[in-house]
Write a protein that binds this DNA or RNA. Structure first.
Lengths: 344, 344
DNA sequence: GACAGTTTCGTAAACGTTTACGACGCTATA
DNA sequence: TATAGCGTCGTAAACGTTTACGAAACTGTC
C-alpha cells in the first residue's frame, strides 16, 4: 500500500478526506485536518505529481526555455540566474516551481518547444532570445499555453513581453557621446537575427538624427556577441577610412575583446576610442578603463516576468489583475572611464 | 474524445493496439503500425506524459540541479551550457529530456532537492556545486534516485561522480612556475566550503612538497570566485610582507579583477606577478596579457555525465555497462603570456 | 482435418490523485 | 417532534496511459 491510501489506512479514514484535508478544503473538521497533516509529515508523504496532473490537468510548474547556442550566450550566466531568482521569488508564493528547459544547440528551437508543450511538463512558459520573426509565439498561442517573452519580437502586439529599454540606452548613450564632442559613433550589433540588435540599431539611428548626424551604414559592425566579436569589431573599426571616435557595444563581454583589439593596434580604449556598452556586470568595473554601461536589476526583471506570467494564467489572473503586460524595463547609466571626452 | 482514444476511434481499432504500435511493441502488424503512426502524425497526437508517468512510474526526464548563489556562479554560463549540451546529446538518444532545476538563492539546497525528488519530476538527477559534506548525497541514496555528481564530495566513495582533474592542474601549474624560477607561489581559492577549493589546495601543497618548497599558509588567499574576489586577492597579495612572484587562481573570472588590482597598484600582471588560472574560456585569450590556463571540453564532460548517469539507471544499465563511475576529467594546458619567467 | 504454434488484437485492470455526489449525524427552529 | 440546515465524511468515477491476459484468426504439420 502506497501513497494517499497508506496515509488513509494509517489514520483509518477515507482517502477522500485525506485529500481534502491536505488541499485545504473547507469541508473537513479542523481536528482531523491536523491529524492528517501530522501523519503526512511523520510518514513523509508527498502527493504524487503524476496523479495530480492527470486528474487536474495542472503541473504546478512553469518553464523557462533558453537556447544555449543563441546569440544571448554572450551573457554571463549571472544574467539568467538573476532572472531565475526573481521569477522563483514570485512563483514560490503559489507553490509553483520553475524548471529551465535548455534547447540543445543542434535542435531546432521551435521543434523543441513543440515537444515541450506536448509533453505537458509545465503549465506556462517563459521564452527568451526572441527573434524578429519567432514561430514560437504562434505555436504557444495555438496551443493555448500561457506564456510571456523576455524580449520583443517583430510582432510585439501578438503576445505579452518584457524587454529591456534598448531605446533608452541608445538615446542616452548617443546623447552622452555627442555631448562629449563625438560625431562619428560606430555600433556593434549581433549578426544573428535576434531582435535586440534590430531594435537597438533603430534607436541608434533615431538618436543620431535628433542630433542632426547622418546615419552611416558603414559604421555598423555586425559581429558575434562575445569576446571574439569584440575583438573583430576593433579590427573592423581600425580598418575604417575615417576611424570613428566612439563605439557602442551591445554586450559587455565584447568590451574585453574590443579593448584587446585596440591595444594590439597600439590604441588605447577610452582615450583613442570611447566605449559604451550594456549590460553592466561585475566585469565592468574591473576592466581598465572601467566600462561605462547600463545597469538593470535582473531580479526585478524576473519578478516582473513572474507576475506578468501569472497574470496571464486563468488560475491566477484574479490575484494579478494587470492583464496582458508589454513593457520595457528601464536601465540605469553607470559611469565608467571608457567614454572620456574627445581628446582632439 | 481526446488522447489515445480519439486516435483509436479514428482508426477503428482498440487503444491497446494503438499504444503498442506507438511504443514499438513487436506484437502488432506492420501495416497497422504504419497506419497508427501516420494517423498520429496527422492528428498531431503525442501521449500525455502524466498518463504514462502514472502507469509506468517513469518520467523520461532527468534533472540537473544547480545553485545560482553557489560559489560556482563565477563560472560564465558557457560552463553549464556546454555541459548541458553534452548531456543532452546522450539523453536524446533515448528520448530523454533534460530539465534544469535552479535552486533559488534564498532556499536551502537540500530542502529544494528533497522537494524535487518528492515531486517525481525526473527519473534521475545530476547535482553540481558539491560541498565537502553534502547532505544531498544521502538524500538521493535514501530515495533510491539514480544520480551522479559533477564534483567530488568529502566522501567520494558514496556515490558516482565526475570531476575535473584539479590535482593535475595544480601539479602542472606548480611545475611550470617552479621551472620558470618561482619559489613563492600564492593561491586564491573560494572561501566557501565548496569542495573544489579543498581539493585544489591539497594538490597545491603536495606539488610544492615535491619541489621541496615549504607550504606557507599565509600565501593562501580565501576569497570569492568572482572578479571582485580577484581584485581582493591582488590587494592581499600586494600587502604581503614578502610579495609572492606568482599566483594560481581557481576561476578565470578572478583574473580580470586581479589584473585590475595589480595595475591599480602600479604592477603589471605577467611581469611582476605570474598568473595561472583555470578554466579556459573565451576570456582567456583576450585579456592582456593572455591568460595561461587549463582547457576542458565541457561538452565531453556532459557526455560523460550523461552516459555515466544512464549506467546507474536500471532501465539503461545494460546499454551502458560501465557500472559506477568515479573519475577525474583531464584538463589541457593552454599557454598564455601571463606566467612569464621571473624577471629578477 | 485435427491440432499445435504463431501472429495479431481486444478487454480490462492498474497507476495515484481529486472531486462530484450523496449520506449521515447533529443542531436549531418552529 | 418534525424538519431544515449545516458540518463532516465516505464512495466511486474520472484523468490518459500501459500491459497482462486471453481470444481469435491464421499457418503449417502430421
Amino acid at each position: 500500500m502506497k501513497g494517499i491510501r497508506r496515509l488513509a489506512e494509517h489514520l483509518s479514514i477515507s482517502i477522500g478526506t485525506v485529500s481534502r484535508a491536505l488541499n485545504g478544503r473547507p469541508d473537513v473538521n479542523e481536528a482531523t485536518r491536523r491529524r492528517v497533516l501530522d501523519a503526512a509529515a511523520e510518514l513523509g508523504y508527498v502527493p504524487n505529481q503524476a496523479g495530480r496532473t492527470l486528474r487536474q490537468g495542472t503541473t504546478n510548474a512553469v518553464g523557462f526555455m533558453m537556447e544555449a547556442g543563441a546569440d544571448t550566450s554572450g551573457n554571463p550566466d549571472n544574467f539568467f540566474f538573476g532572472v531565475f531568482d526573481g521569477v522563483q521569488a514570485v512563483l514560490s508564493r503559489h507553490q509553483l516551481d520553475l524548471v529551465v528547459l535548455p534547447c540543445a544547440t543542434d535542435e531546432d528551437p521551435t521543434e523543441y518547444l513543440r515537444r515541450m508543450i506536448a509533453r505537458r511538463l509545465v503549465d506556462a512558459l517563459i521564452i527568451s532570445a526572441t527573434h524578429r520573426k519567432d514561430p514560437r509565439v504562434e505555436l504557444l498561442n495555438k496551443a493555448h499555453v500561457p506564456f510571456i517573452a523576455l524580449g520583443r519580437t517583430g510582432t510585439p502586439s501578438d503576445h505579452p513581453w518584457i524587454d529591456l529599454d534598448f531605446e533608452g540606452v541608445a538615446n542616452r548613450a548617443v546623447d552622452r557621446l555627442v555631448a562629449k564632442g563625438h560625431r562619428s559613433i560606430a555600433v556593434a550589433v549581433p549578426s544573428s537575427d535576434i531582435n535586440l540588435g534590430v531594435i537597438f540599431l533603430q534607436a541608434y539611428k533615431e538618436a543620431l538624427a535628433r542630433h542632426g548626424i547622418a546615419f552611416d551604414q558603414s559604421l555598423v559592425i555586425y559581429t558575434s556577441s562575445s569576446e571574439q566579436g569584440g575583438y573583430q569589431a576593433a579590427h573592423e573599426l581600425i580598418g575604417m577610412a575615417q576611424r570613428p571616435t566612439a563605439i557602442l557595444l551591445v554586450y559587455e563581454l565584447m568590451a574585453i575583446g574590443f579593448y584587446r583589439g585596440l591595444r594590439d593596434a597600439g590604441l588605447n580604449p577610452g582615450q583613442d576610442v570611447a566605449v559604451i556598452a550594456f549590460r553592466e556586470s561585475p566585469l565592468s568595473r574591473f576592466l581598465s578603463p572601467a566600462l561605462t554601461c547600463f545597469r538593470v536589476s535582473l531580479r526585478d526583471v524576473g519578478i516582473g516576468l513572474g507576475e506578468s506570467l501569472l497574470a496571464s494564467m486563468p488560475a491566477y489572473a484574479d490575484i494579478y489583475p494587470q492583464g496582458i503586460v508589454r513593457r520595457v524595463w528601464p536601465m540605469e547609466l553607470v559611469e565608467g572611464d571608457s567614454d572620456n571626452a574627445r581628446s582632439s
